[in-house]
Amino acid sequence: MNKPHITVKDLTMAYGDFVIQRDLNFTINRGDVFVIMGGSGCGKSTLLKHLIGLQQPARGDVIYDRQNFWRSSDAERIRILRRIGVLYQSGALFSSLTLAENIALPLGEFTDFSRAEIADIVSYKLALVGLAGFEDYYPSEISGGMQKRAGLARAMALDPEILFFDEPSAGLDPVSARLLDDLIINLSDALGTTIVVVTHELASIFAIGTNAVFLDPETKTMLATDSPKRLLAESKDSKIIQFLTRGEGNVETTR
């Protein structure tokens, strides 16, 4: 299973002159549940934006399989984007469309399914995230947690090879967050989907993460990349241990 799916090479991210993170190097393997973690303001979401083509790197490359994302032509880039699904922090559902229309949009655009087939897929995906029967609701008529789950259903619509999650459990109650974790593990096991999660939810990190990268806001670079459990067991870096133990670790704290 250790075939690299996404490789990040010497990536430097910046807004104008303001560097967010520099010299990032890590590999996301096929079938990984890869966690991007770090304290708030360290550039986790910005890194995600670089991976999914929303922000161009100041320097360095993002490579999908063997294709260099940012040096490909527009058409090739769109082809890569069709292989991924993204769940945004707020769900980012199209507010002028019903849930069914939201999920049907990529299906209608990129597949040759008939209307009836699309309706079936939509119902199945909604049922998968626990929203069976909500086809004709508008995003504004359902709760934030439900919007998020509907966003997930839309991200999964085309059965993407890679799913990206931006803070999936933020704003969810503990039980829903747990259900979401289970769903992520299921997707990864059953379909072999590669999953990239931006989170700082410790419970999730240990429950689902098979690999991770830790970003540090002070040195503005990554401190380590490894499985979260191994990081906790073996890392000697006080910042990582502090993060993974909520600051209660055996390493001397600064206070």
């Binding site: 999914i52 083509g53 929303l54 769109i78 082809r79 984007l81 069709r82 991924i84 993204v86 945004y88 922090q89 707020s90 980012a92 559902l93 199209f94 507010s95 949009l105 990529p106 655009e109 990129f110 839309r154």
Partner: peptide
């Protein structure tokens, strides 16, 4: 503008639309 605030435009871009 509201679609931008709500990341809907980002969502379209990452859908390849």
């Amino acid at each position: 503008g509201t679609m931008n605030v709500n990341s809907e435009i980002d969502a379209l871009k990452t859908m390849g639309i």
